[in-house]
């Protein structure tokens, strides 16, 4: 049986100069490769960690999977169905099955909408009539551990952790199979990071979700992911199980990355 999500030899390029500009400057290749020849797969119920520093292309890779940026070469298969080359309108169905959580917990919520409509939004977008959006919003809010009072709150009235929970609730609204989480703990306090990771872990157990976690935070990814890929300048420099990579890092870049994490012990 094939894995839920299979990415093979994926390549994403960005234009650095327009046609005219490229001609004028004599550039023969006005592109940069944000993601180069990347392959991995994600099984049901698994957590895959994508680790890299800024500019490594990890966020672009995540966005390419959900169709926010176009991939040029390679393939992305979801449940055996090819996604590369789909038109935006054909992506609709995919977006019911793959949800994405963005970095900034508060800024990724529409600033002038109440939590109630943030969570019910996907039902309106996909024109789902057989479910009562209001009831669903209550159910989802409860699922992520928030009480009903939050339905009437605006994003700026939420703390980072609360906003992150709302983001999780919204990502879950259409019963997706995969959640792509871009830095799920960025900007959260240490004690709150644990709450969110525990929440995501519980939801994974209960709902059988698969996670693709994009992060630069090694201590966090170590506790949550089953397998890891270390990304550098658009390529995977090392892949393996989390234990393998933390215990026997092979690539010098991975070694450097691990060594750079400050030790919380003054000795």
């Amino acid at each position: 049986m094939p894995d839920l999500l299979e990415v093979e030899h994926l390549r994403v390029r960005f234009r650095t100069a327009g046609l005219v500009q490229a001609l004028l400057k004599g550039l023969d290749d006005p592109f940069i490769d944000a993601v180069m020849d990347v392959s991995f797969s994600l099984a049901k119920g698994e957590t895959f960690g994508l680790v890299g520093e800024s500019g490594s292309g990890k966020t672009t890779l995540g966005r390419a999977i959900i169709g926010l940026v176009q991939a040029q070469e390679g393939s992305i298969k979801f449940e055996g169905k090819e996604l590369v080359g789909l038109k935006d309108s054909q992506y609709q169905e995919v977006r019911r099955n793959i949800a994405m959580m963005f970095q900034d917990p508060i800024a990724s919520l529409s600033p002038r909408k109440k939590v109630r409509s943030q969570i019910a939004e996907p039902f309106k977008i996909h024109n789902i009539k057989d479910k009562d959006p209001d009831q669903e919003a209550r159910r989802l809010l409860k699922l992520v551990g928030l009480h009903e009072g939050f339905l009437e709150a605006y994003p700026h009235q939420l703390s980072g952790g609360q906003a992150r929970r709302v983001g999780v609730a919204r990502a879950l609204s259409l019963d997706p199979k995969v959640i792509i989480a871009d830095e799920p703990t960025a900007g959260l306090d240490v004690s709150v990071q644990g709450e969110i990771l525990n929440l995501m872990n519980r939801l994974q157990r209960e709902l059988g979700l698969s996670y693709l976690i994009i992060t630069h935070n090694l201590p966090v990814v170590r506790h949550v992911s089953d397998r890891l890929a270390i990304m550098y300048l658009g390529r995977f420099v090392e892949t393996g199980t989390t234990t393998e990579i933390f215990e026997k890092p092979a690539h010098p870049y991975t070694l450097g990355l691990l060594a750079a994490v400050p030790e919380p012990d003054p000795g």
Binding site: V190, S191, Q193, G194, P219, V220, R222, H223, T242, T243, V261, P262, E263, P264, D265
Partner: peptide, 10 residues
Amino acid sequence: CDPARISETR
């Protein structure tokens, strides 16, 4: 709480 101080993976 600091995940970096938790030595065993959990």
